[in-house]
């Protein structure tokens, strides 16, 4: 079923992303090492006045900040190849470890938002297309267009203010209750803390998929094959199920995979608003506090993450759409 040209295609994609990652390494290293933030100062923080010049030099030496950029880049490159990606200055553990931990927390958040927004958006798109031109359609369209231009952090703050502060239904941020030992945190605690950020992400996440599904289904409903199906006596819900869903499901799923970058971007903001201890929050911390190895690690990781989404979207299309599934003809 799957033939060599398919593997060749995947291989090409992987080679392409490898070269992309390489370029990304150079560019981000260059940008970060030219940033106006002095890593030593950011590392020491508010205690700066009490730290003497000698101590500063020691700190710089400890983290290798005194070496020339080229040497630092090579050292960093070596750690990438080793797999630990260097040591995070703020968490004082290997960058790969930090990313893994943080990403697992983010994964729960993004996963929930991803599935929720996918299903809701898909259904909204179908309803809008079926009622094309009606007030329901107009509301869904208006909602989606408005949301598409609503900043995530603004929406997050709004939800926080109304649902947590005013009504007290949800905790005001963090991933787990404050002051509770790690072993005593229950699943219910975690769920309780994840609902609001996930909701924030989902509410904005439906816009894209809803609009896309709506347009796709409208096109399908105007297509020749729907006309022919009607001429053959098919109608109503059965017609939608047989020919409509079949033709809009695949583009919707692939769009969802291809939109991981927006999801990731959104989660950086949402995690910041809700102080949710995920990868997004770590990104902001690393940036603000000049944690060069961590920041670079996250840049590489997120690029890989987004690329995987796109690759999966491509693969699904190739495997599922009979028109692209080469070598499967008689």
């Amino acid at each position: 079923m799957i033939n060599t040209s398919f593997f060749k295609l995947i291989l090409m994609k992987i080679l392409r992303v490898l070269s992309l990652l390489m370029a990304l390494c150079f560019i981000s290293f260059f940008l970060v090492s030219h940033s106006p933030i002095d890593p030593v100062q950011a590392y020491v923080g508010a205690d700066m006045t009490r730290v003497g010049a000698e101590q500063r030099d020691q700190i710089a030496k400890h983290w290798g900040l005194d070496k020339p950029p080229v040497e630092r880049f090579l050292l960093w490159g070596k750690s990438i190849l080793k797999g630990d990606m260097g040591t995070s200055m703020i968490y004082r553990s290997p960058v790969s470890e930090v990313i893994k931990q943080r990403f697992l927390a983010s994964l729960a958040l993004m996963g929930i938002a991803w599935i929720l927004s996918g299903i809701l958006g898909f259904i909204m798109g179908i309803i809008a297309a079926m009622m094309n031109g009606s007030w329901i359609d107009k509301i869904i369209k208006w909602y989606s267009l408005t949301l598409a231009s609503t900043p995530t952090f603004w929406l997050g703050l709004l939800l926080l203010m109304v649902l947590s502060v005013k009504f007290g239904w949800f905790p005001i941020g963090m991933g787990v209750p404050a002051g509770v030992l790690a072993e005593e945190v229950t699943l219910a605690n975690r769920i309780n803390h994840i609902i609001l950020p996930a909701l924030t992400l989902s509410i904005t996440g439906v816009a894209n998929i809803a609009l896309h599904t709506r347009q796709k289904l409208i096109d399908v409903l105007e297509s020749d094959y729907i006309l022919y199906a009607r001429a053959k006596g098919e109608s109503g819900f059965k017609l939608l199920l047989r020919h409509g869903l079949r033709n809009i499901a695949l583009p919707a799923v692939t769009l969802q995979f291809a939109s991981l970058s927006e999801l990731f971007g959104g989660s950086v903001l949402a995690e910041q608003v809700f102080s949710y201890p995920g990868l997004g929050q770590a990104t902001v911390q690393a940036g603000l506090r000049g944690d060069l190895p961590l920041l670079l690690g996250i840049v590489l990781f997120s690029a890989l993450f987004v690329f995987s989404g796109n690759l999966i979207a491509d693969i699904i299309y190739k495997l599922v759409d009979p028109r692209l599934k080469e070598g499967k003809s008689i």
């Binding site: 020749d224 094959y225 006309l227 022919y228 079949r246 759409d321």
Partner: peptide, 9 residues
């Protein structure tokens, strides 16, 4: 034409 058939069925 054949375009009147559902392309995915």
């Amino acid at each position: 034409s054949v375009n009147f058939l559902d392309p995915l069925m």
